[in-house]
């Protein structure tokens, strides 16, 4: 009898699970590293236009692993990531397929997509240096963060965060590993506190006089200015685009790719095309203060008000290539400890 109970509960679970697993063919399934509230308005718009329903599962950790394990039976069609290294990781694991369409070719400049068309960028984001207004206007280079005059003045989130890892990768590409390690060690020595919190928390710390300088992505500044509570933090700092006199500011991307075994290929392509379309690119610009990759689509007014800037032309794939080296250097410098 006990066995019967157990058996029936398993049946029950099986029934429940399969009921969840049934998806109609006119859907498109997305594995997203991006948070749902950032992309949901876009998906809603897409559904409204095409009638194709978008199913999302969001996770910051382990998506690639999940996709790999699922293999040819994976339900995933589209992958959305928040930085370049994730895309390259997926590509290196042969989990992506090449996609081409006139819309994509037209919309995305060559430096913002894979040479083999396995991934496409959607937006770019700059790794800015925020500085306290009390310092006055300063022209920053990333290299300046190692300057002794900023001893105890710098705040940052964990060095292991993908945004910082990508920056370190770019530094390696520019200066080589040995010099980058020295830079990391000096930056660490300048930190006001152990790396912690988010990019916004660093701006808050500047506002509270805990430090003067922090690293942060561009769109956070816009988002903070639009938040009643956080506006005072943002008002305390300048957003600076580093290295304007030389190679330009480090830029990362958010991007998309089609899964190798995408079951709803046509719908997936439709979604990809939609995401690079002008209205969608405009939504990216407006809702999350990012820089749209599509030429001709303007950033939001607020973002535009921060001025034009020169972006580092270093290829995204080079940045991804140095990722592991960057992690090793971060460990060697014991940056987070």
């Amino acid at each position: 009898m006990l066995n019967k109970i157990l058996f029936s509960s398993f049946v029950l679970v099986a029934v429940l699970t399969t009921s969840i697993n049934v998806f109609a063919n006119d859907d498109v399934n997305v594995y997203s590293y991006r948070q749902p509230f950032l992309v949901e308005p876009l998906f809603n718009e897409f559904t409204k236009e095409t009638g194709i329903k978008v199913n999302v599962v969001f996770a910051k950790k382990g998506m690639a692993e999940r996709l790999e394990r699922e293999g040819e039976y994976s339900p995933a069609d589209i992958l959305l990531t928040t930085d370049i290294s994730r895309l390259i990781e997926l590509k290196d694991k042969h989990l992506l397929q090449a996609v081409q369409s006139p819309e994509l070719t037209a919309a995305i400049p060559a430096q913002y997509k894979a040479a083999d068309n396995t991934w496409y960028a959607l937006t770019t984001r700059v790794r800015n240096i925020y500085s306290a207004k009390r310092l006055g206007k300063v022209d920053f280079n990333y290299e300046d963060l190692a300057d002794e005059k900023y001893r105890g003045k710098i705040c940052t989130r964990s060095g292991k965060h993908p945004y910082n890892v990508a920056l370190v990768s770019a530094m390696i590409a520019e200066h080589g590993e040995a010099e980058t390690l020295t830079w990391l060690e000096k930056v660490k020595a300048n930190l006001a506190r152990k790396p912690q919190g988010s990019d916004r928390a660093q701006v808050q710390a500047i506002h509270q006089n805990l430090c003067d300088i922090s690293l942060g992505n561009s769109y956070y500044f816009g988002n903070m200015l639009n938040d009643d509570k956080q506006k005072v933090w943002a008002d305390a700092v300048y957003i600076n685009f580093p290295n304007q006199k030389n190679r330009g500011a480090h830029v990362n991307i958010s991007g998309m790719a089609m899964a190798k075994y995408a079951p709803n290929k046509a719908n997936a392509l439709a979604l990809m095309n939609f995401l690079v379309s002008k209205p969608a690119q405009k939504m990216y610009a407006e809702t999350n203060m990012e820089y749209p990759v599509r030429p001709g689509v303007q950033p939001s007014k607020l973002v535009a008000s921060w001025g034009e800037f020169k972006a580092d032309t270093l290829s995204l794939e080079t940045i991804a290539k140095h990722r592991k080296a960057a992690l090793i250097l971060l460990d060697k410098a014991q940056f987070d400890l």
Binding site: V13, A14, T17, T18, I20, N21, E70, Y73, S74, P75
Partner: peptide, 15 residues
Amino acid sequence: QAPGLILSGTVFAII
């Protein structure tokens, strides 16, 4: 027809 990921892709795995 292939049933899909009935174990790893459903709440079965969570439970």
